[in-house]
Design a binder for these strands. Structure first.
Lengths: 153, 153
DNA sequence: GCCAGATAGTTGCACATGAAACCATATAGG
DNA sequence: CCTATATGGTTTCATGTGCAACTATCTGGC
């Protein structure tokens, strides 16, 4: 019962995947407060709106690529958002399989209200970092992502 | 229909929560390959094993605190692991409500086999970073977490 | 032009998860 | 002691998600 076995012991506090997951989870949870409680959006719906706000017009496929969500998940989020009148969906004139998605006036208004709050919240989150650190952080994260992509193949 | 609306546009690629989530998701997915395909463990189960390997003996409550998982989720992971003979669970002598969890010989053997693989994988992941960068990364992440904790209250 | 894949998106199904109700045990106050 | 309350852990239930099957449309080869 004392200390019989530290054979391959590894310290989870210095294990990047664990730390990353914990942080992402906490950040996500805190951010969700903003759009969930006040606007009744779940994560998937928020992501769709954020991308449409960012890019103006996208198809489900493009959103799927950007958010790494399953296509069914995107599809369902879109249905709800359309039902709530926050986005419109119309078949692309070029290809009837594709549906161009856009924010409606209402959806746009919602985002115009929500985005500044989200930004302010993020600013507070990253307040402990200097601007340079923040850039380095994003840069390191980009390199890690690239490494994953390269590993994969 | 042209370019009517970039009023509060914000760039998701420089939005930390988004980037963090995407990276954590990819890392988690890649890591899961190691324990899922070869050892049939899901995320929750892996986390329980990792903590028991790390800390030797814990209660469900402690694991819950460490992993930020719901207690029901921990409970179910424990059931499966016990069923597979990877951990043992016995009521704590001090308090019958608590159950002390430990790896069995088999569970220990599995981790002795798995952990080095995980470590090697992590080493490859962080290869693009210098040792100092890696430390800075963890440090920045810690500061962000602290900020979240302080915000919350 | 027409058929054989490919591709965008939807739906059915099985499963994992979180919230809440629940059970068992512990502890504190009378 | 004995009751009231708190706490660790389990189970139930509703919900969200991923995978796979499906539908509708498109595209390339003949």
């Amino acid at each position: 019962m004392t200390t019989e076995m530290p054979p391959t012991d590894f310290d989870l506090d210095h294990f990047l995947p664990y730390r990353l997951d914990r942080l992402a989870d906490r950040v996500s949870e805190a951010l969700a407060q903003l759009y969930e409680t006040h606007y009744g959006l779940n994560v998937a719906q928020w992501r769709v709106l954020a991308w449409l706000h960012h890019r103006h017009e996208l198809t489900a496929k493009q959103i799927r690529a950007a958010t790494r969500m399953d296509k069914a998940r995107v599809s369902r989020a879109v249905q709800v958002l359309e039902g709530r009148g926050l986005i419109v969906r119309r078949p692309s004139p070029r290809d009837q399989r594709l549906h161009d998605l856009r924010l409606t006036e209402t959806g746009q208004a919602l985002m115009v209200e929500l985005v500044p709050q989200v930004r302010a919240w993020e600013a507070e989150l990253v307040a402990p970092l200097t601007t340079e650190e923040y850039h380095r952080l994003l840069d390191m994260m980009a390199r890690l992502e690239r490494q994953l992509r390269d590993d994969a193949r």
